[in-house]
Design a binder for these strands. Structure first.
Lengths: 263, 263
DNA sequence: CGGGCAATTGAAATACATCAAGGCGTGTGG
DNA sequence: CCACACGCCTTGATGTATTTCAATTGCCCG
């Protein structure tokens, strides 16, 4: 996100506008409830290639859209809520903290991602969600969301796929955190992000959006931000990647694969 | 498990005996399908204090019991199957491997644990399961298991609790793997195992079963077995714990808590 | 007895954390 | 417009934690 795109938001309150039909959206199928559930992906390829485009949810009752500036906390682990959140625009991080203060990012949330599949059934989240860029998200009532799931069998199926996916991702995260070598970990992170973005079609050429700060990378893979900086610089000197202006270009994908141990 | 308890099994094939009613079991409620689902725990406290006792599953159709010697692989990640496995006796480890060979243990499976909640819906597991001690497990047909879930609402509820639990455990694992300092990680592992064992009532006094080899600990927390050995020795010199003869005694629990960062 | 697995130990190399200082861009308030 | 604070990135110097390698021991089992 460039500075000119950034809205001026001076206080910590999220701006809120209740859902009004916006037929100009690039996602106007009545089945398009959730991007992640693949129902949008088919048409998104033909749509304008806006990155991070807003997902619209027509014919869905009682949802509201919120926008929060970068670096703000969206969800506190202890707060209870009856809502389910879906990211429409921007990046967020889901994390937990040990009582001693150490924080670990569990996953990055991209547009279309449900904020933790368990949030459908539990009213307490048990983790933080923080905005990385400015984030727009949609807020559904748990009950409404569940009801929609029962009305539409294919949605239910997609949800179960989403939570299996979530588990696979968690397993892969553990695999990577257990790795030795900062290079391995970072290469893995880059490749897995690239894969996710490509799957959603949010990638123009080889250049991908990369709004992560070094501290995000650091607390996602268990290193200090200083060391992350050194390794990234090294990667760039080796012409494996190129980072500039909040976007990343993978120059030598094979090389990264090799370093990450995906071979 | 002591040497004298260990059956002599000479080949790699698992011994298989189809289920025959065994009313002498310490778990004879008709509802007692799965230990983990809490239905056994109430009575297990009054039962004889056998550690690692066999879980029996009366009135449940088409299940078979298998026994596999220590260090043998129970499940390969690519093999497909229509069965759901539950550990009855002994310890196992669930793990995944990167293409380069690095293996990460995702969880230790104790008596009563379902081998991955996703195995109910997917015919391919995607991970290894290896016996740590000799392991006895029960094998259900996926369909039969699902049918039983629908027959019994409370079981369904327990299942959903099991998978939420599985996710919490996965999150905690990531949190620990991201920690710096071998002591922290190992203390955390010990405490979390103790907690799980205590919950199941498989703990006599402060002494708990600890059949893990150093390499298991190592690949569970992402360190080398050499270093694990050094840290464990250090813990014992500091009189935090005492390990002997495959069992572990926690001497200074507060100390461990402090080291683990649980404060 | 020999072979495989596990635990232990020490010495050396390396990877990583920690600390500290400086630079750069951006928003902010005078 | 300026000065200033803040967040972020970079760099170097230093110490520590961890890996790696190698050699030794004990144990269980065939």
């Amino acid at each position: 996100m460039t500075g000119s795109e950034r809205q001026q938001i001076r206080d910590g309150l999220s701006t809120q506008k209740f859902h009004a039909a916006s037929p100009s959206s690039d996602c106007n199928s009545s089945a398009c409830l959730v991007y992640e559930f693949d129902l949008c992906i088919g048409m998104s390829k033909t749509a304008t290639s806006d990155r991070n485009r807003l997902i619209d949810v027509p014919r869905f009752p009682s949802s509201s859209t919120h926008t929060i500036p970068a670096r703000r906390t969206i969800i506190h682990p202890k707060e209870t809520t009856e809502f389910v959140l879906i990211i429409c625009h921007g990046w967020a991080a889901r994390s937990i903290a040990a009582p001693n203060g150490h924080r670990q990012i569990l996953s990055f949330l991209l547009p279309g991602n449900l904020i933790s599949t368990t949030s459908l059934f539990e009213s307490s989240h048990g983790h933080y969600v923080e905005a990385i860029t400015e984030v727009t998200y949609r807020k559904f009532k748990q009950d409404d969301f569940k009801a929609a799931l029962f009305r539409c069998r294919v949605l239910l199926e997609k949800l179960s796929m989403a939570w299996i996916d979530e588990r696979v991702q968690a397993d892969q995260l553990a695999l990577n955190l257990g790795n030795k070598g900062a290079g391995k970990k970072i290469a893995w992170l880059i490749l897995s992000l690239e894969k996710r973005l490509a799957k959603h079609g949010i990638t123009s050429g080889e250049k991908i959006d990369f709004p992560l700060r070094q501290r995000h990378v650091a607390s996602a893979i268990g290193l200090t931000h200083v060391h992350v900086g050194k390794v990234l610089a090294q990667f760039q000197r080796a012409r494996l990647i190129e980072i500039c202006d909040r976007s990343l270009r993978i120059i030598n994908k094979e090389g990264l694969h090799h370093i990450a141990g995906w071979q």
